[in-house]
């Protein structure tokens, strides 16, 4: 077995054992922390498709995270107020059902990513970073100035949305649900990485001219990758809003984009489990150091600096060595 596989399995094991232990010891706060880590990991896995596999450094992924969050917030707030979203030309009601909310979150963030990607991917490098940031900020200010859905204050949902057969208000059950979503996303992503699309996308990152010269258009590859990436991040946004039972423009802020990127850099860029490990370490630091000082980001910054300077492959890169191309 390859070293990276072992690291991946250990990561998953830790991610399961810690909340289960907390459940036995009746420590719901720890379960909530683990759930946060899982949800952030999903967001990171989404961004990693664009950033790691595609080499598309997007500083606007909070837009998709937030759109997923608002999809949940808007649908659930209408449902709890018994006010339909619209009545004409056809009736659309709010919903408290997670599967429907997830579907809406995925579709709306995918559409947003398609539109933003179609324009942004005409640029590259620093310009791409800046234009994705600009789109993200546009949506952020739009949310702030839209009073119908809480504006700056955001939207509160009183009761967590439901999933058939589960009591989602029970922390361990909600954790289990999020963990399953993470596993499915990771499985799908591992398939994509090894697929024809994955090979072409990774090759386009390394050498776009090579991809062109065999008759494949890098732009189309990147646009599809960016759209899928946005969709996954949007799904995690819906879960995050459900975890907090609250959605606000903070989810759309560029700091959020930065945080998602930080998960990937800590864990390992383009590694399947990179964002998972990154999100876990982030949550751990936030919890431990956050107790020490309000300014714990200083330590996070120092850690990032060390990784960028001395361990470019992140934690996985440092432990598993460089990537093996294929078996």
């Amino acid at each position: 077995m390859r070293r990276e596989h072992i690291i991946n399995l250990v990561t998953l094991a830790v991610l399961v054992v810690v909340p289960l232990g907390a459940w036995v010891l009746d420590e719901p706060f720890i379960i909530t922390l683990a759930t946060r880590a899982v949800i952030f990991a999903i967001a990171g896995v989404g961004l990693n498709l664009a950033l790691g596999q595609g080499g598309l450094v997007s500083l606007g992924h909070a837009a998709f995270f937030g759109i997923g969050g608002y999809a949940m917030g808007i649908l659930a707030s209408h449902a709890q107020a018994y006010a339909p979203l619209m009545e004409w030309p056809f009736l659309i009601e709010g919903t408290k059902s997670m599967p429907i909310i997830w579907l809406v979150a995925v579709v709306s963030s995918a559409l947003a990513a398609l539109a933003i990607g179609a324009l942004s991917l005409r640029t590259s490098g620093v310009y791409f970073i800046m234009i994705t940031l600009a789109f993200g900020q546009m949506i952020y200010y739009f949310a702030i100035s839209w009073p119908a859905y809480g504006g700056e204050d955001g939207l509160v949902v009183y009761v967590r949305n439901g999933f058939p057969g589960l009591n989602t208000l029970d922390p361990i059950q909600f954790f289990g649900l999020c963990f399953c979503v993470l596993c499915i996303v990771l499985w799908a992503m591992s398939r994509v990485q090894n697929s024809a699309f994955g090979l072409a996308l990774a090759s386009a990152r390394q050498n776009p001219v090579r991809v062109q010269s065999v008759g494949i258009d890098p732009y189309r590859l990147r646009l599809v990758a960016f759209t899928l990436s946005g969709a996954i991040t949007g799904l995690s946004g819906a879960l995050f809003a459900d975890l907090n039972r609250f959605v606000s423009p903070t989810m759309l802020s560029w700091q959020m984009s930065g945080e998602i990127m930080v998960f990937i850099i800590i864990g390992g860029v383009a590694r399947l489990f990179g964002p998972v490990i990154g999100a876990m370490i982030f949550i751990l630091l936030e919890h431990v150091l956050g107790g020490v000082s309000e300014f714990w980001h200083i330590y996070l910054g120092a850690l990032l600096l060390m990784i960028v300077l001395f361990a470019k492959g992140g934690v996985i890169g440092a432990l598993a060595g460089r990537e093996v191309a294929h078996d």
Partner: peptide
């Protein structure tokens, strides 16, 4: 070289079958 063969044959947008 598989990338080359893929470009020639087409079917880049296959997301699940292992290309190798």
């Amino acid at each position: 070289v598989v990338l080359g063969a893929l470009g020639r044959r087409g079917g880049v947008f296959r997301f699940f079958a292992p290309v190798m």
